[in-house]
């Protein structure tokens, strides 16, 4: 199964899940939960936001694989 097919399948499932909301009696506790498809939108938004944030975070924290094992330049020169 290719990625594209999976994408369309999931898209159909996602739309169906949001559509089902009108058939089911919902129990929102918070105001924002009353928005149709809130959980789905929240997950999708968080995910896209998360991945982009992580790409930037990686720029900050990425080091070579042997970062902690290899001697630093100063140690090597001693």
């Amino acid at each position: 199964m290719t990625m594209k097919k999976t994408f369309y399948l999931l898209l159909i499932a996602a739309i169906l899940l949001v559509a089902t909301e009108s058939l089911v009696h919902m129990h929102p506790y918070f105001e924002f939960e009353k928005v149709t498809g809130f959980y789905g939108l929240m997950a999708f938004g968080s995910y896209i936001f998360g991945v982009i944030t992580m790409k930037f975070w990686r720029l900050l924290v990425k080091r070579p694989a042997d970062y902690y094992d290899a001697p630093t330049q100063q140690e090597a020169s001693e």
């Binding site: 999976t6 999931l10 499932a13 959980y39 999708f44 896209i48």
Partner: peptide, 12 residues
């Protein structure tokens, strides 16, 4: 919804 939309995000 939470799970399917996350999976959708992953595939996208």
């Amino acid at each position: 919804q939470l799970i399917v939309f996350t999976a959708l995000g992953f595939v996208l």
